[in-house]
Design a protein around this nucleic acid. Sequence first.
DNA 1: GGCATTGAAAACCTACAGGTTAATTATCCA
DNA 2: TGGATAATTAACCTGTAGGTTTTCAATGCC
Lengths: 121, 121
Amino acid sequence: MPDALSLTFSALADPTRRAILARLRDGEASVGQLAEPFLGRMTLPAVTKHLKVLERAGLVTKGRDAQWRPCTLNTAPLRDVDAWMEEYRAHMEASLDRLGDYLKSITTPTRPDPADDHRDR
Amino acid sequence: MPDALSLTFSALADPTRRAILARLRDGEASVGQLAEPFLGRMTLPAVTKHLKVLERAGLVTKGRDAQWRPCTLNTAPLRDVDAWMEEYRAHMEASLDRLGDYLKSITTPTRPDPADDHRDR
DNA sequence: GGCATTGAAAACCTACAGGTTAATTATCCA
DNA sequence: TGGATAATTAACCTGTAGGTTTTCAATGCC
């Protein structure tokens, strides 16, 4: 049994699930409605499984209305993520100056830059 | 090949890896130093693998100093996480009120509700 | 050169994630 | 009562995650 935070991160580590969460920001939706954008890529049971992962992580709550299961977003686990991130905020800002280097390193195809000499000491 | 954000979330979805990141906030450390707290629970190659996951997600950078690989924390991917979280911040705050209501609802016992009889604790 | 140390790589195992198809349950409606 | 609709469950497949043990490579030191 993994801890809650691992469960949350792992639930967020999938673009389909993040898209489902994004959709739920606009209000509750049934499983079918949530599945609709993905039905070209995957089947309904697959979406049901994704929803179960989100549910187990506490990010989604499934209600019932006749044969429909209206799903709602639950942001409580995201607050835990936020709290975890807080511990890294200072470090993030401290290394903001190196963000430029990072972006350059993944966008420009390794242009030999003499100004980079101080790195890699 | 998953997208960068999924890679990051999935790297964070493990307590060992998060502990490694936490350790790296205090400054760079060799693989052996990073592994030391876990060697009762797992072997060195396991930690090496965890480090590779963190490296692939861009959260850790491995340098070289003789036979040591000094690892440093890289928070750039955490900024992406932060940006993603931003989209949910409004919703988080909005649901803070409902959290209060919820807490009240479970602390102040309301009238026994007959509709709850079907629940099996 | 020979050896200890640091770490990575290879080969392997088990469990689980994410997908499928097909069957099942629950509900509404005519 | 019987069908259509919504969603879950079951059974199965494949790939990968996370661990192990064993072997290999690079480096510093006598």
